[in-house]
Design a protein around this nucleic acid. Structure first.
Length: 549
RNA sequence: AGGGGCGUCGUCAAGUGGUAAGACACUGGAUUUUGAUUCCAGCAUUCGUAGGUUCGAAUCCUGCCGCCCCUGCCA
């Protein structure tokens, strides 16, 4: 199973840097989430990339909370982020940081820029600043405050820090080039006034650094060597480099951009995910239909499946949308080897075996896994009345229907062969009972004559099964690209969750994940399930090559 | 006076001048007490396009075409 870790353009860059002995050949990456939401599968790609690179090149990967905007951030998110990364199987060791840890240093860096004549306090209002910025095709105009003296800037910046000005009245800007075709270089804001309580620094600051300033410098402080981010920051790289080059810092990080993950039939933006949670379209961040790590975990996805998926999708620079079928493939692949097989009937119809003795109960051994007998087996009770899936009986079967039909013989997994003799219907013509006869010679679901029975179906004994709640999930959205043609919420799938009552065999294996034979992979809901009232989530269905004509 | 990126199979994606990997999906077929799993086979004469350089081009050059990102005191 040893797999060649595949190459990508980032590894190529790193290999060149190592060859040139940049940073003494050391590799330090970082995963820098803003604690303003829960992590999702797209973050998993970045996490796997950053931690994976560190591991492959014998380096380390830091976890850094990018908490420079207290108005949007919350400690709840800080906790969930750590939990999710750990659950995915990655370890930052002792390298857990906060951008807010660097506020004092960052402030000093700003002073350094002011003293060098490379930053100034600007009094333009937000609207004025927008006007002065110019447009995509026209140069901007220089701020009238651009040429204040160093002393005046120092004094004003000090007053900003001291809380002497209200929000929005002044900012600190880098003095770069108002006519740059790259808008990011038109004297970007590096500090804004925001009288907001910060979840870590409390009320000690009322000015907060902007991402473009805080990020490269935080990287430099931590001596990050390779700062990997998504494509939309490509335009910011010259600014990233400007700060690193114009300020005396411990490190010399380099920014590399890659394409973020998109998945079809879902949305990935934090804004949309937040809205789904806040407006109760889903039950929470960990709703099993959400593409969040906590949602996938509750749905029954395993860390291995997610990691294998991240390895498989690759890392490149072209915008792309990965098919969810690939994610589903990796859970099936993982659960196939791990999940004990068990029988549950999701849509029951009663079968009465007329020639089976009343009150008789037999127990058949059912292996938990056909490929790994060592994981054991259990005894499954069999009796005169059983339940099978409604879809496993057809009064007028199509061609190549291998299941139960009038006069047709079928194998009951582990038990006997049965043949349908007749059906009982109610007043409205609905079949309420299927009557069968069984072949006593087929005990153990095989016969000495070697006769072929093409179909094998699963079942539960009516009096030896219990009712459980099962939650069936489908894609959260009905179309591959939600929001492409209208508001994304209008593309929400009304049947993304179906709750049903199912019949399941009595004594379940001691496991969280199961394969319900012929149905799919299921897991116990970690939040709502109790021993009195078990609840199962369908992780993913089994593949099926059955297609009725 | 616009700038920055990206175009290789239905979807991802290797390929770095020597004659198109792999995965998912899909289609056949074998085995099967899960129409699952497993196994085997098929699936880009061509790399957005048009020219050029070369013995040889997905890879180099030029021109077109298409798509994405950038005018928050968000990250």
């Amino acid at each position: 199973m040893e797999e060649q870790t595949r190459s990508n353009f980032i590894k190529d860059f790193i290999n060149i840097d190592i060859k040139e002995n940049k940073n003494g050949g050391k590799i330090v990456t970082r995963f820098p989430p803003e604690p303003n939401g829960y992590l999702h599968i797209g973050h998993a790609k970045s996490i796997a990339l950053n931690f994976g690179l560190a591991k492959e090149f014998n380096g380390v990967c830091h976890l850094r909370m990018d908490d420079t905007n207290p108005s949007k951030e919350d400690v709840e998110y800080i906790e969930s982020i750590q939990e999710d990364i750990k659950w995915l199987g990655f370890d930052w060791g002792t390298n857990f940081f906060f951008a807010s840890d660097y506020f004092e240093t960052l402030y000093g860096y700003a002073i350094e820029l002011i003293k060098a004549g490379k930053a100034y306090v600007c009094d333009l209002s937000p609207e004025e600043m927008r006007l002065y910025r110019g447009t995509l095709v026209e140069a901007g105009k220089e701020s009238p405050y651009r040429n204040r003296t160093v002393e005046e800037n120092l004094d004003l910046f000090q007053k900003m820090k001291n809380g002497e000005f209200p929000n929005g009245t002044r900012v600190l800007r880098a003095k770069i080039d108002m006519s740059s075709p790259n808008l990011n270089l038109r004297d970007p804001i590096i500090y804004r006034i925001q009288h907001t309580h910060h979840h870590r620094t409390g009320d000690s600051w009322c000015i907060y650094p902007m991402y473009d300033f805080a990020h490269p410098l935080s990287d430099a402080i931590e001596k990050i060597t390779h700062s990997i981010c998504t494509l939309e920051f490509e335009d910011h790289r010259p600014l990233y480099d400007w700060f690193v080059n114009n300020i005396e810092t411990p490190g010399d990080p380099r920014q590399i951009e890659f394409a973020r993950l998109n998945l079809n039939y879902t949305v990935m933006s934090k804004r949309k995910l937040l809205e789904l949670v806040q407006k109760k379209y889903v039950v929470g961040w960990d709703d099993p239909r959400m593409p969040t790590i906590s949602g996938l975990r509750r749905r029954g996805y395993t860390p291995e499946a997610i990691r294998n998926f991240c390895d498989a999708i690759g890392v490149a620079k072209s915008n792309s949308t990965v098919d969810v079928a690939l994610l589903e493939h990796f859970v099936r692949e993982d659960l196939n080897t791990k999940a004990p097989r068990v029988m549950a009937v999701l849509n029951p119809i009663k079968v009465v075996i007329d020639n089976y003795p009343e009150n008789q109960v037999e127990y058949f051994e059912g292996e938990y896994h056909p490929d790994f007998p060592e994981i054991g087996s259990r005894e499954v009770a069999f009796s005169k009345e059983i339940f099978i899936e409604r879809e496993d009986f057809e009064e007028n079967p199509p061609k190549k229907y291998f299941r139960l039909a009038p006069g047709q013989e079928v194998r009951l997994k582990y038990a006997y062969y049965i043949t349908c003799t007749h059906v009982v219907k109610n007043d409205t013509g609905e079949i309420i009972e299927v009557h069968c006869s069984y072949d006593p010679e087929s005990k153990g679901a095989k016969t000495a004559d070697g006769r072929k029975v093409k179909g094998t179906i699963h079942w539960v004994s009516a009096s030896h099964s219990k009712n459980v709640e099962v939650r069936l999930y489908e894609h959260l959205f009905t179309c591959p690209n939600p929001g492409e043609e209208r508001d994304y919420k209008d593309d929400l799938n009304p049947t993304s969750l179906t709750t049903i009552s199912a019949k399941i065999e009595e004594n379940l294996a001691n496991s969280t994940h199961f394969q319900f034979l012929r149905n799919g992979y299921f897991c116990i809901d970690s939040k709502d399930s109790t021993s009195e009232k078990p609840i199962f989530n369908r992780v993913v269905s089994l593949k099926s090559s059955y297609k009725p004509e």
